[in-house]
Design a binder for these strands. Structure first.
Lengths: 204, 204
DNA sequence: CCTACCGATCGGTAGG
DNA sequence: CCTACCGATCGGTAGG
């Protein structure tokens, strides 16, 4: 790729990165292209030399991040570890995404409603696929004779929600170290799934 | 109160209820007063005979709901049940708020960022008070010799986040009944807190 | 990459 | 409760 094109592409990445931070901070509809341009040091009109539109940026942020999650899920399939280990891997992956890729992950989980069709359906379709697969991994971990109906669904929702809730920890003074937080989440959520009082049939 | 005033106040409540539903569905900044007016069957200008401004509606929705949560927390103090029962009561209260008062609860937890000062600080102050009190209840439930640092904080975050995550269940086909969902959440989150492998010192 | 500008839409007001 | 309208701001384009 010629130098000029590589530079332009690098600038596009910078713009999208700043956009992700602002979408996270103020929400997509409340972020104006003029705010974004100022943050970067351009006039608003100049942004359009690098990006197509505001909505295109939202799409890029969300689908890139979603595809990373899907890729991790597929890679889990190829491992031959037991199901509890797979659930732990899922928790750790999402916690790390939330910590290391805070803006992108937050925008994906909170701003996807502002996608326009057909991208909105495209996203919800991918998400439906992801959560179903995740639920089936949890279900396999619980064994055949689960006591409560819909518990694998509840657990899947709770894990994803718990990670999303780390937003408040991220915003706060952060008295707890990232590694400790990750371990705490695993302990709390896995122990709930491996507690014999709730799930007497769990295969350890 | 004279009849005319009572009627006007009832219409205000109707407007705020519709506003809550729209703020939840599309987000506060993406909801226009013209959309809201159309939903109710008025011209946009006529809304201002009943409400002061768009932001005033957001404030009313959020602070009313927040005060209900605070009131429940204070009432917990007066009970002399043990700490695990208090945690269970907290979980059940929030799950029910999420189910029965979906729009208001969702707007409070997701749209508070769009409050203007001084209301924004007012809200974050109340929330800080709430979560600290909630954390101290959980900490008391864990006993003095908790194994992991910051576990009561993690548990508090996880409980609140898990309830917020019920949004996806609410949007979905709802194969699981509300009562079952509530029981599942309690089982999953409480068992995590009462698991001797994680918390050997828990006072039951 | 900027100046200049477009049509559309926003929250809200005046006046009846 | 409506008509008519305000200034501000939005995403985006033309033309250089």
């Amino acid at each position: 790729m010629p130098l000029a094109k590589r530079k332009k592409s690098a600038k596009k990445e910078l713009i999208i990165k700043k956009a992700s931070a602002m979408f996270r901070e103020k929400g997509y509809p409340a972020t104006s292209m003029r705010d974004l341009a100022e943050e970067i040091g351009l006039e608003a009109a100049s942004l359009y030399n690098h990006i197509q539109s505001k909505s295109e940026m939202l799409q890029e942020i969300i689908f890139r991040t979603a595809d990373e999650c899907l890729q991790h899920l597929e890679s889990l399939d190829e491992e031959d570890t037991n199901c509890v280990a797979k659930i732990e891997s899922l928790i750790r992956f999402h916690v790390r995404m939330m910590l290391n890729r805070f803006d992108d992950y937050y925008v994906m989980t909170n701003e996807w409603i502002h996608l326009k069709e057909p991208h909105l359906s495209h996203f919800t379709g991918k998400r439906r696929y992801y959560v179903q697969k995740m639920e089936s991994i949890i279900e396999a971990g619980l064994g055949n004779k689960t006591t409560n109906p819909g518990m694998s669904y509840t657990a899947m929702l709770t894990i994803l929600a718990a990670v999303r809730g780390l937003e408040f920890w991220h915003r706060s003074a952060k008295k707890i170290a990232p590694g400790t937080m990750e371990d705490n989440m695993v302990a709390l959520l896995i122990s709930g799934l491996t507690d014999d009082k709730v799930f007497p049939s769990l295969k350890k």
